[in-house]
């Protein structure tokens, strides 16, 4: 059991280190880029110029924009209240319990007669909230640990990084599952905390790597030669230069957060109150009707996949655009 787990953890570590290594080049080639291109064109400007024409990025951007719009205005867009069983009288406990589509209810209803279409739309809210907050909390925790490890050397660094290694060696879903199982009462916040905890070591390790590169950079040496205080060196000279890959990673982590949130809800570790719909939870409830009414499972699953795809496409193309090795 331990061996495949360890392998899994190692693969994640390698991936993170690879991302960290990327940032170094981006700084160096940022200079080269300004020379070969018109003067005054920064890395970000030239990255944007390439992104604007990248169909992969535009697809991802369109999906995520639509999704965010949908989530923010869900209550306005949804034709019905997702908590009220309008079609409850049509739910027949015998042969086929699920009411099919009818005027005003394009996707029919669920097993207690609530409008399925409205539930799908309102479900995007929970997904967005969990995804964004889990990523934000994970990022915050990762920033604190990463800065702590990257700014100090010696035993603080070793201690933090060994703790991070331990967390990385546990498969992420298993870790999130264990943390949310510890909570006395499951709610969306236990979900958020569980997923955020899983992301902390990813961000911490990535940031520490880029911080170490900054520490040995020329401009940090120059700042030290000017007698700049250590706190200013860390927060003004090292962190802002080390953040690039972390921010890119955050967009990719959003996608995994959404998938993890759906997975945990599916397993019944999310918000137990189903008056507030959530895609993973809807997927879990659809299980019992999967043979007669597969569409109840299909639609929430498709939503999860499309949104996760949107964030991944955007994150990956962002990473590629900022990666100097892929510059053309």
């Amino acid at each position: 059991m331990t061996n495949p787990l360890k392998k899994y953890g190692d693969a994640r570590k390698e991936r993170i280190d690879q991302l960290a290594a990327m940032s170094d080049g981006s700084v160096a080639v940022a200079d080269a880029g300004t020379i070969e291109e018109a003067p005054g064109v920064s890395l970000i400007a030239s990255a944007w110029r390439r992104l604007r024409r990248n169909p992969v990025f535009l697809t991802g951007l369109t999906i995520t924009t639509l999704f965010i719009f949908l989530a923010v205005f869900a209550r306005v867009i949804a034709p019905h209240d997702p908590a009220i069983g309008y079609l409850l009288d049509k739910v027949r406990p015998q042969s086929n319990p699920i009411p099919g589509p009818e005027p005003g209810f394009p996707l029919g209803a669920d097993n207690v007669g609530r409008d399925f279409f409205s539930r799908l739309i309102v479900g995007s809210q929970q997904t967005l909230i969990v995804g964004v907050f889990a990523t934000l909390f994970g990022l915050t925790g990762g920033l604190i640990l990463g800065i702590l490890a990257g700014a100090t050397s010696g035993w603080v660094d070793s201690l933090v990084m060994r703790a991070v290694d331990v967390m990385l060696s546990i498969p992420s879903l298993l870790l999130a599952l264990s943390i949310s199982a510890l909570a006395p009462r499951p709610s969306q916040w236990t979900l958020i905390i569980a997923i955020a905890t899983v992301q902390v070591p990813v961000f911490a390790r990535l940031l520490r790597g880029t911080m170490l590169q900054q520490r040995s950079s020329d401009h940090v040496l120059a700042a030290r030669a000017l007698g700049i205080k250590r706190s200013s060196i860390v927060f003004r000279h090292m962190v802002p230069n080390a953040l690039g890959p972390v921010i890119v990673q955050a967009t990719i982590v959003l996608a995994t957060s959404i998938i993890d949130a759906a997975a945990l809800s599916f397993l019944g570790l999310g918000n137990p109150d189903d008056r507030q719909p959530e895609w993973g939870q809807m997927l879990g409830q659809a299980q019992q009707f999967i043979y007669d009414d597969p569409h109840l499972a299909f639609y929430p699953a498709a939503c999860i996949i499309i949104v996760a795809l949107g964030f991944t496409l955007m994150g990956e193309s962002l990473r590629e655009a900022l990666d100097p090795k892929s510059r053309r």
Binding site: V27, A28, A30, D31, S217, D218, H219, L221, A222, A223, R224, A225, L226, G227, I228, S232, R236, H237, P240, N241
Partner: peptide
């Protein structure tokens, strides 16, 4: 350092902090 003794480094391309305007790097000292 910076007050009594200052140093000018070899590579001006990498010795300035790329994310801070030059003016702020002067005022910082």
């Amino acid at each position: 350092r910076g007050k009594d003794i200052a140093m000018v480094f070899q590579d001006p391309l990498s010795s300035l902090n790329p994310v801070i305007p030059v003016g702020l790097q002067v005022t910082e000292v």
